[in-house]
Design a protein around this nucleic acid. Sequence first.
DNA 1: TCAACATATCGAGATATTTATATATTCGCA
DNA 2: TGCGAATATATAAATATCTCGATATGTTGA
Lengths: 118, 118
Amino acid sequence: MENKTLRNEVNLLHAQICQGLADPKRILLLYYLADGPRRVTDLAGALELPQPTVSHHLRVLRERGLVRSERRGTEVYYTLIDPRVVQALDLLRAVLADLLARQADLVDRAISRGEQGV
Amino acid sequence: MENKTLRNEVNLLHAQICQGLADPKRILLLYYLADGPRRVTDLAGALELPQPTVSHHLRVLRERGLVRSERRGTEVYYTLIDPRVVQALDLLRAVLADLLARQADLVDRAISRGEQGV
DNA sequence: TCAACATATCGAGATATTTATATATTCGCA
DNA sequence: TGCGAATATATAAATATCTCGATATGTTGA
């Protein structure tokens, strides 16, 4: 009863974490960070994106508690806080792989039946 | 030097699957569907949302390949296609739980030190 | 203190998402 | 055929997000 608001609040936070993963660039960022802490400039170079854009995405991840930033001199290192985030990404990528395999199979069968307009 | 365009395409689909999870109502829908197929009206009742809103969210999930719909007479049953989607949600919820626990701990320590303006 | 560098924030335009009401479609049945 | 129930789509307003150039902040070293 009284927990309904609390449960909604938790669900909202849950969704916000998922939202953190809901961008191709951020997924790449998280996979880079899975290998260890990285500087903003290096990440921007790896993703071939302007530095402000990368900083924006890192902020999204930081605000959702997925990464942490640490200043070392003039540079800032970002670190993945919880490896389970990447585990979850891997799970979902496996789901996607199966999905694509099923679709490819459908196409194959259609072609072998000589159907048009696939 | 593999196909960069293909990799970007896969990353985009990966992100779109994550996007499917990035809404509190859709998370609830997926958890309901984890228990078995459900009709639209039942889901709308459970979520206390108008039926068109639920249909919209179900469409989002369907277009991303997370659920499948099946007509039985005048009703439509929605089914979770891959249980790993809920596994991923559980992982991320565990991440969130740790996050909240750490924050609560910080607050506790601050209070026990008698700090102001927390 | 100043110059150079790394990063963050601001602001704006383009695009996407969420929600709900109104309306359309689809099916079973009288 | 036509009615009622279940679901889907259209539409529109409010809101959020992505991107990037311009600019601000913070740090080091001369």
